[in-house]
Amino acid sequence: MQRAIETHKLGKVFRSGFLLKKIPALSDVSLNVEPGTTFGFLGPNGAGKTTTIKLLLGLIRPTFGEARIFGKSVDEVSVRAKIGFLPERPYFYEYLTGLEFLHFCGELFGLNQTDRSRKIESLLNLVHLKGAEHTQLRQYSKGMLQRIGLAQALINDPVLVVLDEPMSGLDPIGRKQVRDIMLHLKEMGKTIFFSTHILSDAELICDQVAILIKGTLKSQGKLESLLDPKTYSIDVCLRGVAPEKFQTIESISNTVVCHNETYTVSVSDESCLSRLLAWVIQEKGQLISVTPRKESLEDMFLEEIQESTR
């Protein structure tokens, strides 16, 4: 089966200023995105995520390497018929109404009037913009712009949806709305490739992730396989034990945090845990919760950045 996205040692050097100074933005990025996956493209701001996405859409030309979408070179215009794209912080023609804008986008895909009207109707429902379609885009809020952006990206029923920072700059409700739409697309079996620097978003919806730091790809793979499965520590929450009693468990744990007469004790492994639990019962304490802490994307992300700056 053809890969949805496939890049081979993709690199980009920008030339800027009067002297055409070379500014490397991206090097040796080899990505593989299988069809049907939701692929999170992670990295801090300025890592080169948007550059990669622009290369994938032929908006800029690679200095090195090549990018293919469904087996075809991204230079081929026809390939874009299968893609839906939402740019970062989208901004559209101010003076068009939402409806006019979507019709315009549909026309660019060569859709006829009836197909467009039908498609737009269902998209407006999907992105919850029914009722706002006759308003000019300059009166749209940020969240509305993001959602009309999603609608225009979906007008051609794309097989691959490319979203650049779809949730940045939105309030929690806006983020949830966008996330729900993405989950809906995932259910429909679309391949989603999206970039973000907000890790919790990725953790919630991604099957696969790639991490880009300073223009180079650090790791790529299934989210579970990238994360260390081993448990870091176990947090035990308890109350009802006198503070001075905690001196007796110094051998088990040295991190005790007290908050509102609730104590959180961190232990490193299972044997310590059973000793701690025995101690709680012995002291007639009240056990609230036991939470194992696994490596999160956040931890991994920080690790990678620390490594690359070292």
Binding site: L57, V79, R80, R89, P90, Y91, F92, Y93, L108, Q152
Partner: peptide
């Protein structure tokens, strides 16, 4: 400047 060109050229438009 306004980035309105990106979604356009990402469509099958030469």
């Amino acid at each position: 400047e306004n980035r309105t060109i990106y979604p356009l050229l990402a469509k099958p438009v030469k």
